Computed example of a mutant assay.
Amino acid sequence: MTPLAITAYTATTALGAGRLAQAEALDQRRSGLRPNDFGPAPRLDCWIGRVEGVEEVQLPPVLARWDCRNNRLAWLALQQDGLLDAVGAAAARYGAARVAVVMGTSTSSIGASEEAYTRLDRDAGGERFADDLQRPIVHTPHSIGDFVQHATGLAGPCVTVATACSSSAKVFAQAARLIQAGVVDAALVGGVDTLCGSVLYGFNALQLVSRDKCKPFDASRDGLSLGEAGGFALLERATETDPLQLRGYGESSDAHHMSAPHPQGLGAQLAMRDALARAGIEAAQLDYLNLHGTSTPANDAVEAIAVAALFPEALHAASTKAWTGHTLGAAGIVESVFALIALDTGHLPGTLNATIPDPVCGPQIRLAPERRALHYAMNNSFGFGGNNCALVFARP
């Protein structure tokens, strides 16, 4: 593919707001996980990656119809790292109608819908949402995409991708196709997912939530820790002077099982191979791989098998889920930001909380951090149903 420049990028997670907060926590090996304090008691006995201050965020009056916890986190994330200024400059350069908005999410604003059903208007026979939640847009999957478009004033194509945990990785591929087809000249991509009852109790019902801090790829791992996050990146056609680029993407749907990956990771391998091919590089040229690494027994083992089948031993591959928790539909953008930070700083994170690697892990799976210059970084994001996406980023 023709490289695309990443001219602005940011993430807000349990580690803090903006890129610097992420980079410092990764460097200090300081996790953002904390004992579950979300929602009404009794609460699940687990650890979560909760973003501080979301409840205090105030949307501008003109955006009041989109008000909900998910869109407040989106608004908080939009304010970081000069993102809005960069978006405004792109709109001025190309025209607002020539800049797309492509957002990823897993549950969007379902937390608002949960609240609406717990507060049904009893005067209307318990069949009507309370007046303050009579806002249909926040009860749809497109809530986040519609909100971001109105919050930024962009007027190009607006898409919300909802493919579970690969959602905000696939936005890069969607945007690349829009730009390369000439539909738009630039795209604001990103993803936001917030904690809610459906997420916590849904994953717990699948027996995937650990009572302890997650420890990806550790031999004794027993489940994930859930988190919330928001992040964004601005993509434009690349020039020779652009320091960070999207160089390739690969997508696959192996459809092996509703929630379990293919046992040999065939879909994951296909996505990674296609990303490398589009980037025009060999597997041996990849320096860093941010693994999906959820800390569930099946997912980590399958990903380790797939990585060992494709890459030489020199690759530094690690999971950052123990810093932020699994941020679901926002994982793709957050961990793409981590890959870009690695390209910027030369800091390759290890895998936090893991001490004894699962025997299935090859030497590519690293527990300790490393520092060195790198040119190519990949991010893996795999979702339910075998919906897979791999992205290759580069510093030319």
Rank of each mutant, 00 (worst) to 15 (best):
L234R: 03
L133A: 07
I365E: 06
T296M: 11
D67Y: 04
Q245D: 06
R135P: 01
G250I: 07
V184G: 06
G156V: 10
A130V: 05
V99P: 02
W66G: 02
R72S: 05
E114C: 14
V302S: 09
L270Q: 13
V334L: 13
T152V: 06
E52A: 13
R211D: 08
L78W: 08
E55W: 00
A186T: 07
G39E: 08
A187V: 14
A219S: 11
L154R: 04
C196Q: 09
R119D: 10
L374F: 06
D146S: 12
V54H: 03
D81W: 00
V184C: 09
P40I: 12
V161D: 03
W75F: 14
D193Y: 02
E240Y: 09
G385C: 00
D242Q: 12
H347N: 04
L343S: 05
D81S: 11
V189S: 07
H150L: 07
G95C: 10
C214T: 08
F311H: 14
P349W: 02
A373Q: 15
V159G: 08
Q269S: 10
G250M: 01
A277L: 05
T239G: 15
G223T: 06
L195V: 11
R273E: 14
T194V: 15
A64I: 13
Q245P: 04
Y288M: 13
H257D: 08
A176C: 07
R122L: 15
S166T: 05
P136T: 00
T327V: 14
R237W: 07
A330I: 03
L367H: 11
G39M: 07
D37C: 07
S166V: 01
P60G: 08
E24R: 15
L276E: 15
A130P: 01
G383N: 04
D344H: 14
A11Y: 00
Q22F: 00
R135G: 02
P60A: 14
L133W: 06
H326N: 11
G191T: 08
A14D: 04
W47M: 11
G197C: 10
T118E: 15
A306I: 06
G32P: 04
L391A: 01
W66L: 05
P3A: 11
V171P: 01
T351N: 07
L195K: 08
G293C: 14
P261R: 00
